[in-house]
């Protein structure tokens, strides 16, 4: 696998981290999406072999099918949970009028902030 993929994985994880470290849930969702893309690319990068599509029949070397299957599963799971998080963002907005994730009240009370 190429260094491009590794660099991309690393960059996406970093940018995603930047996005999740703030309060708007929409941005957090996008950030988590980027991190997941980064993780998926990293699994893909960890393939044990490179080559043609893993379809039996040809003579060429085949790409490692296992990371592909893993990533495929991961993509779908991430999709499902992203959908759930989107619904949460919507619920949060409908209930409170904002999708910003504020600090926990009870924790702030103990911290003496309220």
């Amino acid at each position: 696998m190429s260094i491009t993929i590794l660099a991309l994985a690393s960059g996406l994880a970093g940018l995603g981290t930047y996005l999740i470290l703030q309060r708007l849930l929409t941005r957090i969702i996008i950030g988590l999406g980027l991190i997941s893309h980064g993780a998926n690319l990293l699994i893909f990068y960890a393939s044990a072999s490179t080559g043609e599509s893993p379809l039996i029949g040809g003579d060429d070397a085949l790409a490692d099918p296992l990371p592909q299957a893993l990533v495929l599963t991961a993509i779908v799971i991430t999709f499902a949970v992203t959908a759930l998080l989107l619904a949460l963002a919507l619920r949060s907005y409908l209930l409170t009028g904002t999708d910003a994730v504020e600090d926990d009240r009870e924790d702030r009370r103990i911290g003496g902030a309220e």
């Binding site: 994880a13 988590l32 991190i35 980064g38 993780a39 990293l42 699994i43 949970v81 998080l85 409170t96």
Partner: peptide, 26 residues
Amino acid sequence: IRATISYVVINLLASAFFLVLIAIVY
């Protein structure tokens, strides 16, 4: 709802790191 969103987000980040771990292991 804030607290529960935190729960989901944190676990999603943990899951992403789990995938990184899987990549390293594999």
